[in-house]
Design a protein around this nucleic acid. Structure first.
Length: 481
RNA sequence: GUCCCCAUCGUCUAGCCCGGCCCAGGACUCAGCCCUUUCAAGGCUGCUACGCGGGUUCGAAUCCCGCUGGGGACGCCA
């Protein structure tokens, strides 16, 4: 069996949203799993709405996610160009072929005329659906030299059946189709024609796309047949709706991939969440990209639509940040550094790497990780007002001076050594850790919540710990009543 | 309206193809408990689902039919 060739063909009419990424991911996974080819094609025939900016964003976001393409924009390939507006002559050539064979015919009805007919019908019966009446279907030459579109002559009987890799056999009667426009009057192809010509000439063997395209498939198959070509295989994916159950909109920023990147989500986590949408592998739900490549299969894809759930998404993201397997420390550091920089902090990789184990269970995103790291790299730390008012006051902090002395006398500043020293001292004083911990914590971190104190002390080091303790002591003295 | 598709906890889903092990399992969310120097993490417990009605069968979440509900499409958008 020959290696499959798959494609992701977004139109740059908006930002890349997570629904689109799910489609890209499944195509990509199958290509990687089978040793096939993943192609990126830009479908920019809607000149009104397509922009170079959107196109750039799509490429950037796909790369960020790690969904690189084997052929496509910027990387080239044997079947280029990979942008539809650069393939116009090809569509013309194929259209002429089909015109000659009679599969396509010229239609001189103008958009205005059709709109008027549509409107008139709606007026008579709002429920009715306008269907192109076939006005030009049997027009004989000579043809007028005026603007015209090209329509597909859909057989008036018969049906189209194909075997969908996820939905199974789907049959649609030709009668339900109308003679769809395939080429605009300006010579630019419509989606259904452009996609077919491109998939054919790019040697695509499997078309996997959203279920919203399912209705286009019979028409496209008719086009392949008219071309004398064998249609590719098809796999449609159930729809991914918004949390409200409504269709995801490209202009809905809440689901833009870039949003999640800026919120500090890890690419692997994004892909993991998306992979479980319309696909499952028993009860397992945490996967690395490598796991997915091994386990993905069309047969395990579901058929019913679902809703995007931000809470579950966050939970999966957190699972990735907690796991050394899914997110090795060096990658964790790489993910966090930009957010530290954004907070105006300069931190060296080695120091961050040392603290990472301590903050893993405390940060759901890289953004939160940077926040949890903040006071290790900010001198002096930011003090939380409430924390200071509550704990750096005379009566709560009465042991702070003694703790300072205890720490000052420590020779071994490792966490275990500090713990031993504290335990002994606490016993001697007949105190418990909870009697002294919070003021020390606020003194050290400026906050009421942090990793264990012994770790915090060790990471901060003796010198900085003492200086923070001293600063806190003066705050207590100054603020006491 | 016409064509296509779908239907298990609030959400993502396992189970369905090849009926019994399912008075339905996992996860998220929520509530509670344990652990505990704080916050997390972790452990445990709990709430909540086979849309409805008919069949077939000794037996149906699983097979068949109908109904209802939802979605997609019906553009010189993709």
């Amino acid at each position: 069996m020959t290696k499959p060739r798959l494609r992701f063909a977004p139109s740059p009419t908006g930002y890349l949203h997570i629904g689109g990424v799910r489609t890209a991911l499944f195509n990509w996974l199958w290509a990687r799993k089978t040793g096939g080819t993943f192609i990126l094609r830009i479908e920019d025939t809607d000149r009104e709405r397509s922009t170079p900016e959107n196109e750039a964003v799509i490429l950037r976001d796909l790369r960020w996610l790690g969904l690189g393409w084997d052929e496509g924009p910027e990387v080239g390939g044997e079947h280029g160009p990979y942008k539809q507006t650069e393939r116009l002559p090809l569509y013309t050539e194929y259209a002429e072929r089909l015109l000659k064979s009679g599969a396509l015919y010229r239609c001189y009805c103008t958009a205005a005329e059709l709109d008027a007919q549509r409107k008139a019908l709606k007026q008579k019966d709002p429920e009715a659906q306008f269907v192109y009446p076939g006005t030009c279907r049997d027009r004989k030459p000579p043809y007028p030299d005026s603007p015209h579109v090209l329509r597909l002559r859909v057989p008036s009987s018969g049906e189209v059946t194909y075997r969908d890799l996820v939905f199974g056999e789907v049959t649609t009667p030709n009668l339900a189709q109308q003679d769809a426009v395939v080429m605009r009057s300006d010579g630019i192809p419509l989606y259904n024609f452009g996609a077919v010509v491109d998939d054919l000439t790019m040697g695509i063997t499997l078309v996997a796309r959203g279920r919203d395209h399912m209705v286009n498939t019979p028409l496209q198959i008719l086009l392949y047949q008219a071309l004398g070509a064998t249609p590719p295989q098809f796999a449609h994916l159930p729809m991914m709706n918004g949390p409200d159950g409504k269709k995801l909109s490209k202009r809905d920023n809440a689901v833009a991939v870039d949003d999640y990147r800026q919120q500090g989500y890890a690419p692997g986590a994004v892909l993991n969440y998306l992979s479980r949408f319309g696909w499952s592998f028993g009860d397992e739900e945490i996967f690395s990209l490598q796991d997915l490549i091994e386990k993905f299969d069309w047969a395990r894809c579901g058929t019913s639509d679902g809703r995007f759930d931000p809470k579950k998404f966050l939970a999966i993201e957190f699972e990735h940040l907690k796991s050394e397997r899914l997110m090795p420390t060096p990658e964790y550091v790489d993910g966090t550094l930009p957010f530290l920089a954004k907070a105006g902090l300069s931190a060296d990789r080695a120091s961050v790497a040392e603290i990472v184990p301590g903050i893993r269970p405390r940060a759901q995103t890289f953004l939160e990780a940077a926040s949890a790291l903040d006071y290790f790299f900010r001198e002096p730390p930011n003090y939380d007002d409430k924390a200071v008012k509550k704990f750096l006051v005379a009566d709560k902090a009465k042991h702070l001076g003694a703790v300072r002395a205890l720490i000052a006398g420590a020779e071994d500043f490792s966490a275990p050594a500090l713990e031993a020293r504290f335990v002994a001292w606490l016993a001697e004083q007949q105190l418990e850790m909870k009697d002294v911990a919070q003021p020390v914590r606020v003194a050290l971190s400026g906050r009421t919540a942090s990793p264990g104190l012994y770790e915090v002390l060790a990471w901060l080091g003796k010198e900085r710990s003492l200086s923070r303790l001293d600063r806190a002591l003066t705050m207590v003295a100054g603020g006491s009543t």
